[in-house]
């Protein structure tokens, strides 16, 4: 706990005071799995979390993402050297583009900006049935609509029940139910597949 609080304070001070974050990794991994920090204020069950944002990127400037929430809330999300960014895979801030969708978690600062610990860009978690399988592509039936899932060689993986993630997609079958974690291609019905979960 001490480590996460210290990390949060560092991130916050870096935003507020523009301090360098050269020492951030000394506090632990910057991977998304390790980047969470403790809440400053507990959130009541059922209530909105002020330290969480979602929406689409409308502008990018000097380490800041300008995001319009789906509920039309306007967010300014500060990316620091300690922010973990995911876009199909762990990546860097320069891969974020105007038009991308995102979820972000961090700390809401007094000026209203969100100092981000983690940003997940275009991430989707789709439950669907496999309608057809092609070369490096899954055609998915999602709530009556078609989604095209692209297999990205070297990145996409499959998990069959309790197996470790493997690159082999050959056990996927038409008609079977799957869950896909992937990255939406903005303004299309296409996703790039990170992990597909399937019953073997």
């Amino acid at each position: 706990m001490t480590e996460t609080v210290d990390r949060r304070r560092l991130l916050t001070s870096a935003v507020v005071g523009s301090a360098a974050l050269a020492g951030a990794t000394a506090l632990g991994s910057l991977a998304p799995e390790a980047a969470f920090a403790a809440d400053a204020q507990p959130v009541e069950p059922g209530a909105p979390d002020p330290n969480f944002a979602e929406g689409r990127v409308t502008g990018i400037s000097a380490g800041m993402l300008f995001v319009t929430g789906s509920d039309m809330a306007l967010w300014r999300i500060r990316i620091t050297g300690g922010t973990s960014v995911w876009k199909l895979r762990p990546t860097t801030f320069d891969q974020v583009a105007v038009g991308d969708g995102l979820y972000a978690r961090g700390l809401r600062l007094p000026d209203g900006t969100l100092a981000a610990d983690s940003v997940w860009v275009n991430i989707v978690n789709v439950h669907a049935h496999i309608a057809a399988i092609g070369r490096n592509v899954l055609h998915l039936d999602h709530k009556g609509k078609r989604i095209v899932g692209h297999v990205v060689p070297g990145t996409s993986a499959a998990r069959y029940n309790d197996t470790p993630a493997v690159a082999d997609m050959s056990l996927l079958r038409v008609g079977k139910h799957v869950q896909v974690i992937g990255a939406w291609v903005p303004d299309t019905n296409e996703v790039e597949i990170a992990t597909v979960y399937a019953a073997a």
């Binding site: 059922g46 979390d49 789906s70 509920d71 275009n122 999602h142 609509k145 989604i147 939406w184 019905n189």
Partner: peptide, 25 residues
């Protein structure tokens, strides 16, 4: 995801209880 959203979540709606939002606990 639920509530107003983008991408494939855009048609998710507010869930069986009519109150669901991605940004809430």
């Amino acid at each position: 995801c639920c509530g107003n959203s983008w991408g494939p979540c855009g048609t998710a709606g507010h869930g069986a209880c009519g109150t669901c939002n991605s940004g809430s606990y």
